[in-house]
């Protein structure tokens, strides 16, 4: 595979007047953004027909940096806004760029219901285990025992497994990688973008400043090592006992299926309505 230089990608897709980004050094969002843009580039998607939607948080600032139509909305509600965009104009491809707090804490309900409806959308979910923008509070994804400013003695709650939840709610495609799995990441995004229905690619992404600093994971190398220890490929996980899997995060493709999408179902619905009214045979 020929990889374009990151300069080429940047020049083609980023809004220059918005740079530099607000992301801290060592933050993983930039990398995932690059994977997403590469996937778009590889697929040759029309820049004019892709809309980026986001909520509130560091990851949600991304639509500001990319030169596409973008809707930066309220906290947790990105997928509800996206439902309107997609259903009002199904020709648009909609990408939601979200953080874990945004998607799975305050926005958890919109997430599971958008999945249930099988809304045609690709969610790129940055999971950095914390609320980075507000200063590192505990998140529903924070691994047990790790610290946040609102869990100064270590989180005592059980964390969410977002990917597993997405599968249970009925998504068409779900994959999870760490930001260091860049080829798998790009391929998963490409797959997701080509599918109808709800697709989600979750990235374990470092936040050295708000999360790492409090948990002795200050530098990128420390984080890489931690992710390597933390993550288990799905194939391997299948052979492991629940005891062995405790505290681990499984990475890989969780589901790849083709249930009919909301846009398709609604098209059929309109036909059905007209038939019921005898407007059409």
């Amino acid at each position: 595979m020929y990889l374009k230089s990151s300069y080429e990608i940047r020049d083609k897709y980023l809004r220059k007047d918005m740079l530099p980004t607000i992301f801290c050094p060592g933050c993983g969002i930039g990398a995932v953004l690059q994977y997403t843009l590469r996937a778009i580039d590889d697929l040759g998607l029309n820049q004019d027909e892709v809309v980026w939607v986001s909520g509130i948080g560091c990851s949600s600032r991304v639509p500001g940096y990319v030169n596409f139509d973008g809707l930066h909305t309220t906290h947790g509600r990105a997928l509800a806004f996206a439902t309107g965009i997609k259903m009002a104009n199904p020709d648009l491809k909609v990408i939601a760029f979200m953080g874990d707090g945004d998607a799975a804490a305050i926005g958890g309900n919109h997430l599971i219901h958008a999945i249930r409806r099988n809304l045609d959308i690709t969610v790129i979910l940055i999971n950095n285990f914390t609320y980075g923008m507000t200063g590192g509070q505990v998140a529903p994804t924070t691994p047990k025992g790790l610290r946040g400013t609102t869990a100064p003695y270590g989180s005592f709650e059980n964390p969410f497994d977002i990917a597993e939840l997405a599968v249970a709610a009925g998504a068409n495609y779900v994959a999870r990688w760490s930001v260091f799995n860049y080829l798998q990441g790009i391929n998963s995004i490409k797959k997701a973008l080509q599918k109808e229905g709800f697709t989600l690619v979750e990235f374990l992404s470092p936040c050295p400043i708000s999360f790492g600093r409090r948990n002795k994971l200050k530098t990128a190398p420390e984080l890489i090592k931690w992710y390597q220890k933390l993550s288990v490929p799905i194939s391997k996980a299948k052979e492991m006992s629940p005891e062995e899997l405790k505290g681990k995060v499984i990475i890989g493709e969780f589901i790849d299926r083709d249930r009919p999408s909301l846009v398709k179902e609604y098209e059929a619905y309109k036909k059905r309505a007209k038939k019921a009214m005898r407007w059409e045979e």
């Binding site: 309220t74 439902t83 309107g84 965009i85 009002a88």
Partner: peptide
């Protein structure tokens, strides 16, 4: 909350 959000999204999509 989702209802008004979807309505805003649709408005930006031109409806």
């Amino acid at each position: 909350i989702g209802s008004i959000a979807a309505v805003i999204g649709a408005s930006w999509a031109g409806a």
